[in-house]
Amino acid sequence: MTDSEARPRLREPRQRVSPRARLMWATSAGLEAVVLVAVLAVVGPITDWLPIPGWLVALVGVLAAAYVVVMPLWRYRVHRWEVTDTAVYTQTGWWVRERRIAPMSRIQTVDHAEGAIARLFGLATVTVTTASAAGALEIVGLDRGRALELVDQLAVQADTVPGDAT
C-alpha cells in the first residue's frame, strides 16, 4: 500500500453516453438560464422593483451563455459507464468528477427514467441503487433503446447473484 512505483491506475469506464446528451444538457441549462435572466430583467431594469442595474443582468446573461456552451461539452467528455459480469462502473460530473463502482451482488434496484427534455432527444437515465443512500449510480443521457437493454441485462445479472445486498 505504500510502495509508490508502478502503481496501477484506475482507468475510465469504457462506454460513452449518447452524443445527443450534449444537446439535452444544453437545452435544460439553456431553459434555466433564460428563466434566470428573464426574472432578473423583469424585477430589475424593467419594473425597477429591485435595484439591479442593466449591466449586471447582461453580465449574468454572458456567464449563463458560457455555462450553456461549456458545461455540456465538458460533461460529455467526462460521462462514461461500464457494466461487467461482476460490477457497474460510472463516471459523472464536470467540475466535480465522481467515479462510482458497485459490485453486481450489491445492486438492489434498477430504474429507468425519461424526463421531459430527455424524451425530446430519445434519451433515458438508468439509475442503479444499492442499500446505501450514498451509493446510487446514475447513467444519464443513454439512448432509449440502449437504456432499456441495459435495464434488462442488469436485472438478469443482479438476480443471479445470491445475498440480500446489504
Binding site: 466535480v96 468528477r97 465522481e98 463502482i101 459490485p103 444499492t130 445486498a165 446489504t166
Partner: peptide
Amino acid sequence: VIGWNLRASWFQR
C-alpha cells in the same frame, strides 16, 4: 462495503 465512490473537484485533481 457495498460500493466505492471516488470524487474529485477540479482543484483536487
